[in-house]
């Protein structure tokens, strides 16, 4: 029987995205966007990537609390 594709639930997706953002902002990866000779707006670009990820995350969330 072929294996069913594994779908991430919203918690798993959120954890992965948060970890990714922490890696981008807190690890040595910050050397890429915060290099001394980088354009002045590069931190804002990194920030915009995080916002785009947030937008992707929340698209499929349905809420049971809303009446």
């Amino acid at each position: 029987m072929p294996k069913q594709p594994y779908h991430l639930n919203s918690t798993e997706r959120t954890l992965i995205a948060v970890l990714l953002i922490i890696v981008i902002f807190v690890s040595p990866m910050s050397n890429f966007w915060a290099a001394l000779d980088a354009p002045w707006f590069s931190p804002y670009l990194a920030w915009a990537v995080a916002i785009f990820l947030s937008w992707l995350l929340q698209r499929h969330i349905k809420d049971s609390l809303d009446k």
């Binding site: 919203s10 918690t11 959120t14 954890l15 995205a17 948060v18 953002i21 922490i22 902002f25 920030w47 995080a50 916002i51 990820l53 947030s54 995350l57 929340q58 969330i61």
Partner: peptide
């Protein structure tokens, strides 16, 4: 704040 709001589902 961005990280906190990104983690909003959890």
């Amino acid at each position: 704040v961005t990280i906190a709001f990104m983690a909003s589902p959890i």
